[in-house]
Write a protein that binds this DNA or RNA. Structure first.
Ligand SMILES: [Zn+2]
Ligand SMILES: [Zn+2]
Ligand SMILES: [Zn+2]
Ligand SMILES: [Zn+2]
Lengths: 128, 128
DNA sequence: CACGATTTGACAATGGTTCTCACCGTCGAT
DNA sequence: ATCGACGGTGAGAACCATTGTCAAATCGTG
């Protein structure tokens, strides 16, 4: 039996930010936004909340080129992302062909417990 | 006019390791292997050498789930990887369909300067 | 309300990577 | 072969995102 997580002000605040943002953001950025809004939440708590949400698949996580982890509230189901390197704006995309292709490649080479990462980065029309 | 990099013992040693390895390895792992072989090279130098090689596209670099950067001497040209999470053993793979797909997606959404990451991770037949 | 279990947050610790800077080695020129 | 300019080296410090610590605050059930 898994205990339900508690409904704390801090967790609600983090979720609220994620609902407002439409692109990916780092834990530290989310922490800053919270501070700006006067709804202060400890940095550790922001990290923990995001981890919990990511484990529950309520948010997606990916790494940018600098190795920072970025989070975003996405729609359910397996998908990938087209992300603006400058502003984080994100388009969710699906690639059924890629899914089949990667499974086949892995199978042909005798690999088990397969997962894949596929992200497209670029500069969006709004960014210089 | 770009200066040719100097031919030092350390750089040669790092390249030699990369030629021997068939999978991806971290800078620290390569540093350890060098130490084992008695061919000691400073950790900073290992990092620098790998950066130079990666910039020159002589080696491929990717991040594992832990955020560590792994390096491997690969064949020329754009390709992706099927990597064993346990031992690093790697199969280079090509996905022409994916290339076209990602370009199309980016174009349809008005994104410029597009790049993509696509890696497949799993457990290879030799690993438990 | 009362209580135990969970959560929080200021701060320290971690760990991969990069930076610093005095010393060294390479290599084209002499 | 020798020289000198300058790129390369390495021990250690610095960096910085992330995680760990633990006492105090909070939540939610009874
Ligand atoms: Zn943008
Ligand atoms: Zn997929
Ligand atoms: Zn490769
Ligand atoms: Zn590709």
């Amino acid at each position: 039996m898994v205990e339900a997580p508690r409904n704390t002000r801090q967790r609600r605040a983090v979720v609220a930010i994620l609902e407002d943002l439409d692109g990916f953001a780092s834990a530290q950025e989310i922490h800053d936004i919270l501070k700006q809004r006067g709804e202060s939440v400890g940095l550790s708590t922001v990290y923990r909340s995001l981890q919990v949400l990511a484990d529950a698949a309520e948010v997606d996580a990916l790494r940018n080129d600098d190795g920072e982890v970025l989070y975003r509230q996405c729609s359910a189901g397996h998908h990938h992302h087209l992300v603006c390197r400058a502003c984080g704006r994100t388009v969710e995309v699906e690639g059924p062909t890629v899914e089949r292709w990667s499974d086949k490649i892995a199978d042909e080479n005798g690999f088990r417990d397969v997962s894949h990462t596929l992200e497209i980065f670029g500069t969006c029309a709004n960014c210089p």
